[in-house]
Design a protein around this nucleic acid. Sequence first.
DNA 1: CTCAATAGTATGTTTTTTGATACTACGGCA
DNA 2: TGCCGTAGTATCAAAAAACATACTATTGAG
Lengths: 110, 110
Amino acid sequence: MLHSTYKCNAGCPVEGTMEVIGGKWKGVILYHLLEKTYRFGELKKIMPGITQHTLTKQLRELEAYDIVNRKVYAEVPPKVEYSLTERGKSLEKIILMMRDWGAANLSLAK
Amino acid sequence: MLHSTYKCNAGCPVEGTMEVIGGKWKGVILYHLLEKTYRFGELKKIMPGITQHTLTKQLRELEAYDIVNRKVYAEVPPKVEYSLTERGKSLEKIILMMRDWGAANLSLAK
DNA sequence: CTCAATAGTATGTTTTTTGATACTACGGCA
DNA sequence: TGCCGTAGTATCAAAAAACATACTATTGAG
């Protein structure tokens, strides 16, 4: 099993997990990928606020942590599919609990 | 029950939860407060990497979200205790799962 | 020969987050 | 009178995250 290394300031694994799934968009990306595999453009469409640049960057970081899988098809125009790895799927409970907590405790505003 | 409002870009409650517990330090602070009430200086001691300024800011934000309680004693020198609110305690499972996931998937480096 | 479609990259800017350092208020104690 | 300890504030600097906009490569269709 792949083990990523991260710098620890607080002697606390919570910090490392935050580094993997934290940030403004990663949780949302993972939440969508729990449901199904998405193409790049589809992800962009269901997250209207994110820029292409940022989406690319987040996906690459998740890939580097072995959380998402990037499958490139040798086609033109290009086709790239993103899905969760096994390790990514192991985050499912956490993501779903975060969704539930947010739904129960926060009122959404557009 | 108090309901905080947050801006939602993705139509996804995960985003809001990340806003509450995300960032470099909040998860770690909450993890420690799960165990017991801490004074300001104690928190600073068990998180050597954080600056006083940042610790203050994080605690105030958590307080604003009704996650931690700030109890000021009218003493000199000052004494301030931080503890989890009921809402804060409702995050326990999420924090513990994040701890476990980190421990299982990441190798720590100082 | 040009164009459309997709998944990017390149470059520069703004915003947010975090850090470093120095300073304050307070009352008790020597 | 001057110093101690605690929990801060005040300022400024640095670093990280996110955004805006424009550009590229590819190739089959027309």
